[in-house]
Design a protein around this nucleic acid. Structure first.
Length: 451
RNA sequence: GCGGAUGUAGCUCAGGGGUAGAGCGCCUGACUGUGGCUCAGGAAGUCGCGGGUUCGAAGCCCGUCAUCCGCCCCA
């Protein structure tokens, strides 16, 4: 059998049209993050395996792509390197590795790079995919959370999403709720993983799984169902937070996590995030390293989230020995692209033509003048390609038309002798012969009136 | 990891034991300095791969791989 030319399963080639769409989205996100004072960072595709192991929970470890050691270990299967699984753990490593003045005491960075997971591919899920991360390190202030929410909301709006929701919750609050419901601490992780599916499968199935897989007792289940039942449509989610607070106050002090969530909300009041921010007791997040506020961004027409994040105050400490508080958010580029493509959210100006004008010639004698004319038009700001072969002129025009190139500049013997060029407008089916130094202006004029 | 479907020309797909097909695309010409329309012609497939049944397999049987859709998990 001929070797398959398809890329590896779950990975993709990005053809020119794909790249333009991706760069459009990435450009918008970068510009928004820069406006908030985040700085760019890039890290290697590979990390030492030890750096990654144990940071993502039990499931996470299995999904890490491992790289075999060279030499005899290719037979034993021993691995020492791995493809990065996310951008957060490499960030924590970087922050542990470089201290001031190489990195500031308060470090705000964004990072848009691919990550790899040995997952089963599905719609909107790949084995190689881009994340757009933004994180703040060095402060425990809820201003950090509020600013991240604002930046993410700003980015979403700049991309053209009017309808997303930012769901906010707190790992500390979840732990307290589970505890007063009588779920033992060593069961928390399992119960939370099941809870995370609530908006997809509903309370009944979550309850069933809590009992069958989470080992939740009948007594505990009663409390859990009350704490996590979905809100009726027009109930204010923040009233639910107060409700939970009231329950705690009956039996003791209110957990500090509740006040933290209130503060985050208040701090977003004058930001792009406020109208989108809801409290949702069922947001749990799969990753193991979160310690405080957690959040997710969702739209109605995509099961699963467009992105998520939270506070992880202990992760840097694992590498450094000394705690550095941190909080971040990750937008999933692929999922954003899926939804934007389905909704037709890309501007027409992304239309895929490789050039504004193609220079067509008849024979080798035209090559020099064609190159010279192309150069002049490029200096005028046009995107210009020179058709390289002496094909029939009809074939050349057909090529330009097929590629969506709007103008063809024809340089034949007559034009070369007269110092002119025939500029053909393919869409309008018109053409005019003008002086070569006037061609660029004529084309720019034609482009601007095309809309 | 489990269930279901599909693999035939570059693309979309028909054909269900007896010479490998269509539409679109591509190439050539009618039209040797002008694209979309028309007409005439042309190239192109070890029918996913391996084995079996048969005088004969793209088709039937077994295996295998790949892709897609559900379940599960995540960005």
């Amino acid at each position: 059998m001929a070797a398959s030319t398809a890329p590896p399963s779950g990975m993709r080639d990005f053809l020119p049209e794909d790249v333009r769409r991706r760069e459009y989205v990435i450009g918008i996100i970068k510009r928004v993050y820069e406006r908030y004072g985040f700085e760019p960072l890039e890290t290697p595709a590979l990390e030492n395996l030890e750096t990654l192991l144990g940071k993502y929970g039990e499931e996470g470890d299995k999904l890490i792509f491992k790289i075999l050691k060279r030499g005899v270990h290719e037979i034993t299967g021993e691995a020492d390197l791995a493809l990065r699984y996310d951008l957060t753990v490499p960030l924590a490593r970087v922050v542990a590795e470089y201290q001031p003045p190489k990195l500031p005491r308060l470090f705000k960075r964004y990072q848009i790079q691919p990550v790899w997971r040995a997952d089963r591919p599905a719609r909107g899920r790949f084995r190689e995919f881009y994340q757009c991360d933004v994180d703040s390190l060095g402060s425990t202030s809820p201003i950090v959370e509020a600013e991240l929410c604002a930046a993410v909301a700003d980015a979403m709006r700049a991309l053209g999403f009017p309808d997303f929701i930012l769901r906010l919750n707190h790992r500390g609050l979840l732990a307290e709720v589970l505890t007063i419901c009588g779920v033992p601490a060593d069961r928390h992780a399992e119960v939370l993983v099941i809870l995370d599916k609530l908006d997809k499968v509903g309370l009944q199935r979550v309850s069933d799984e809590w009992v069958s897989k989470g080992g939740v007792t009948a007594a505990a289940l009663e409390g859990l169902r009350r704490a996590f039942e979905p809100l009726p449509p027009n109930v204010d989610s923040w009233a639910k937070l107060e409700q939970i607070g009231d329950i705690f106050k009956k039996i003791g002090p209110e957990p500090s996590s509740i006040e933290t969530l209130r503060q985050i909300r208040r701090l977003t009041e004058r930001t792009a995030a406020f109208d989108h921010l809801t409290f949702d007791s069922s947001v749990a997040r799969g990753l193991g390293y979160y310690t405080g506020a957690i959040m997710e961004v969702n739209v109605a027409d995509l099961a699963g989230s467009l992105g998520g994040g939270g506070r992880y105050d202990n992760l840097v400490g694992i590498f450094l020995g000394q705690q550095i508080p941190a909080c971040g958010f990750s937008l999933g580029l692929e999922r954003i692209l899926v939804v934007m493509t389905e909704r037709g959210m890309f501007p027409p100006s992304l239309a895929t033509s490789p050039a504004d004008v193609m220079v067509a010639t008849f024979d080798a004698a035209g090559a020099g003048p064609a190159m010279r004319l192309a150069g002049v038009m490029r200096e005028a700001g046009l995107r210009v390609m020179v058709y390289p072969d002496p094909d029939r002129i009809g074939k050349q025009i057909k090529y330009a038309d097929g590629r969506g190139i709007p103008f063809v500049a024809i340089l034949g013997e007559d034009e070369i002798n007269a110092g002119t060029v025939t500029v053909k407008n393919l869409a309008a089916k018109t053409q005019q012969t003008c002086r070569q130094d006037g061609a660029a202006a004529a084309i720019l004029e034609g482009l601007s009136t095309r809309g």
